[in-house]
Design a protein around this nucleic acid. Structure first.
Length: 433
RNA sequence: GGAGGCUUCGCCUAGUCCGGUCUAUGGCGCCGCACUGCUAAUGCGGUUUGGGUUAAUCCCCAUCCCGGGUUCAAAUCCCGGAGCCUCCGCCA
């Protein structure tokens, strides 16, 4: 949720932000009205409580003759307090509802427009040319014995898959590479829970308009996360962090689950859009004034990772109308998919400023020692299934084999090529006694 | 799944049986001041977090894991929930 004081002092800025997102700007006035109403109601309840407190303390010291009259008065006040508190609860709830409906205030630099108005910041790497008919990742995956969609569907339904043989080895190699690079960059590696309580889900902004995207385990009132961002953000909820030594950075590994409601017919082939995949996610807590710089650092780590995989990509600055609820700014990296002749999203990094931290009550001590909401940022280091799809396509050869980027080789037994029918023992590091 | 114990203002802790200046005890840590050649030690004072009000201070309200309830009055009594610990059962 956004800073109430900021809304009071800069209502026009918040309205403009809502407008740019294509969201309802009248929510701002609903919020301001609820805020004014709440303050009025709170004052009445506070005053009544004060009176009643005084009265009930007088009961103890009262003489036998005074007592009945004082008790009478205290009882009457108690009834009034009860009503006032009821009104306060209602006003608090109304304020919270209005508050939760408002999306984060977008950064000034965010491009205007919607999904199609992302601004390409730079394009890196050469789009490869092939002197043969390119296959899509599923064809290659099947040739290699790396992906099995049919059996995935048999066991779990559409948009589920098995990674087999070299596919499974690729998953682990990518995970190893991602975690290793993150640790080298100073991140704390974390294996995070994939099932979380409602508060974590709501705190990260995934239960608003987009809650149909989320799997819910009704019986236990738990949610399956769509990204380990949820668990990583929730990890420090209710805490006051020490950020004096710099941002707190985590690299979280978890499975991710997405219902993909509303994407029927999109990317139905292969493992580009699936209900479940594994991901290494970067997450950072830092003071709000450092958030924009930290955001660029996360982006740089994402770019280094893709560069190490020798994948051509472009960086896009997401337009206002396409930002998530929590994000003030977002950069996506789109990598080249030869079978589609286009760039597709592979990673995404968002600066959530203090929006999530307010909901989750995550603070740090500022220069004066006062607790203040921290900024939270997240960024994909490696969404494994989609990255495998991209690797298979970009690095394919005419004979159906796939070139292995140098950075991955240490975790694939040093092999330079994955080839159909290859001995898997070659693609694991040699066993030592 | 069953039984029991526990949760207090950064950390530890008194208080809970038997409701009332609890406006929460003491220690550690931290901050300030005094003393001191410097450090240490010592002494004195301060030190939860929100909300309301205000130019700011003052002040007021809330806050003893969370949510309800009983009562004039709840850290304290009752109900529900969460977390931690121990034991039994089950399990990888």
């Amino acid at each position: 949720m956004i800073d109430l004081r900021f809304v009071r002092e800069n209502p026009d800025a918040v309205r403009a932000s809502q407008r740019a997102r294509g969201a309802d700007e009248s929510l701002v006035d609903v919020l301001l009205a609820a805020d004014a109403e709440r303050r009025e109601v709170v004052k009445r309840a506070d005053d009544l409580r004060g009176e009643q407190k005084t009265a009930s303390q007088a009961v103890r010291g009262a003489s036998a003759e005074e007592r009945p009259a004082i008790l009478e008065r205290a009882k009457a006040l108690a009834a009034q307090v009860k009503d006032a508190e009821e009104a306060q609860r209602a006003a608090d709830a109304a304020l919270r509802t209005a508050h939760l409906k408002l999306a984060n205030v977008i950064a000034d630099e965010v491009p205007p427009g919607g999904e199609d108005d992302a601004v390409t910041l730079r394009t890196v790497g050469e789009v490869p040319a092939y002197d043969f008919a390119v296959r899509d990742h599923l064809e290659i995956g099947e040739l290699l014995g790396a992906i099995d969609m049919e059996r995935g569907a048999k066991v779990s339904g559409a948009r589920f898959y098995f990674l087999t043989g070299p596919g499974a080895l690729l998953e682990f190699a990518l995970a190893q590479l991602a975690i290793s690079r993150a640790v080298a960059a100073g991140f704390v590696p974390v294996v995070a829970p994939a099932l979380v309580r409602p508060e974590a889900m709501e705190g990260t902004g995934f239960l608003g308009e987009h809650d149909e995207e989320v799997y819910r385990i009704e019986r236990d009132d738990l949610y399956l996360v769509g990204t380990s961002e949820v668990a990583l953000a929730g990890m420090h909820s209710g805490e006051v962090l020490d950020l004096s030594a710099g941002p707190k950075r985590y690299a979280g590994w978890s499975s991710c689950f997405r219902r993909e409601a509303g994407s029927y017919g999109k990317d139905t082939r292969g493992i580009i859009r699936v209900h479940w995949f594994d991901k290494v996610e970067m997450f950072s807590f830092c003071p709000p004034e450092e958030a924009a710089a930290e955001h660029l650092r996360l982006l740089a780590w994402e770019e280094e990772f893709l560069t190490s995989l020798e994948l051509p990509y472009r960086v896009v600055d997401i337009a206002a109308g396409d930002l998530g609820t929590s994000a003030a700014r977002k950069y996506d990296i789109e990598a080249w998919f030869p079978s589609q002749g286009t760039y597709r999203e592979l990673t995404s990094t968002s600066d959530c400023t203090t929006f999530q931290a307010r909901r989750l009550n995550i603070r740090f001590r500022d220069g004066e020692g006062k607790p203040q909401p921290a900024a939270t940022l997240n960024g994909t280091l490696c969404a494994i299934a989609r990255t495998i799809a991209c690797l298979l396509e970009v690095h394919q050869r005419a004979d159906g084999s796939v070139y292995v980027p140098k950075a991955l080789r240490p975790w694939l037994g040093g092999v330079e090529l994955l080839t159909p029918g290859m001995a898997l023992t070659a693609a694991v590091p040699p066993l030592t006694a």
